[in-house]
Simulated assay, not measured.
Amino acid sequence: MRGYVGSIVFLAEAVLLVRDHDFFTHQPLWTLPSGGIEEGETPAIAAARELVEESGCTLDPAQFQLIATSEVRRGGVQLSQSWNFTATTTDPHLEPADPDGTVDDAQWFEVDRAVELLALHRYDPIREPAIRFLNGERGLHWTFELTDDTSDQPVFRWHPPRLFRR
């Protein structure tokens, strides 16, 4: 099972998004700074590392607040677990240096525009928790059941999220 993290970072009323390439279509899309947890990392340390790699925004892992968790299952078997965090910064400077070579831009967007851009995301486990958080919902745990991944638009089924325990 793989572990993943994502971050919703604020600069005053603006939200940080990065332009990455969609895993399924390889087309550019605006999304959250995110990525996999490496061996020996906690989710907050991984979130801080991915944030600096994909945007140049540097934050201490202690600044991250857990806002949502999710899991992806297929046929009842858990494929991945994700932790979504939020944090704030006062430094507007951005300079992506993504070692994976998929992120080519990072920008600050007003919240409404960030929601519009995230709504275009094809991957429900990223899109749904992020939009719900930006619309005011906190502390949710999601379970997504992958029902079809044979096209460039994976299909998921999920139940309403429930509150998670810290």
Results as ranks from 00 to 15, higher is better:
L94R: 06
D22I: 04
D104Y: 01
T90A: 08
P99W: 04
E53D: 14
S82W: 07
E128D: 11
G6L: 07
A130T: 09
G36N: 14
G56C: 06
Q107S: 14
F109C: 06
S80H: 00
T102K: 08
R73V: 09
F109S: 09
G40M: 08
P96E: 11
L11S: 03
A106N: 02
I131V: 13
Y4P: 00
E54D: 06
R122Y: 01
L16E: 02
A87N: 01
R113L: 15
T86E: 14
S55Q: 02
L94D: 04
G6F: 06
A68R: 00
E41D: 09
G136C: 05
G36R: 15
G35R: 08
T69V: 12
D112P: 00
V103A: 07
L66F: 07
L59A: 02
I45D: 12
P43C: 07
Y123P: 00
Y4K: 13
S80N: 07
P61F: 03
D91W: 02
D20A: 11
D105F: 10
Q27C: 13
N84V: 14
L118E: 04
N84H: 13
D124N: 03
A114M: 05
P129M: 09
L79G: 08
L117V: 09
F133E: 01
I45W: 04
W108P: 00
W108T: 07
A62W: 00
A130P: 00
E95D: 12
A130D: 02
V115R: 01
L134R: 01
F64E: 00
Q27M: 14
T90S: 10
H121T: 13
I131H: 02
R122K: 11
L51E: 02
C57R: 07
L66V: 12
L51D: 03
W108S: 05
L117H: 04
F85C: 04
V15T: 02
V115I: 15
T102N: 09
G56T: 08
L29A: 07
Q78K: 11
E38D: 13
M1F: 12
T90I: 05
I37D: 00
S34P: 00
E54F: 04
M1Q: 11
S82D: 05
P92C: 08
V115A: 08
T86D: 07
V52D: 10
E110K: 10
L51P: 01
V52H: 10
D98M: 12
P61I: 05
I131Y: 02
V72G: 01
L59N: 01
Q78C: 12
N135L: 13
I37Y: 00
Q81G: 04
P28I: 12
T25Y: 05
A12V: 06
S55E: 02
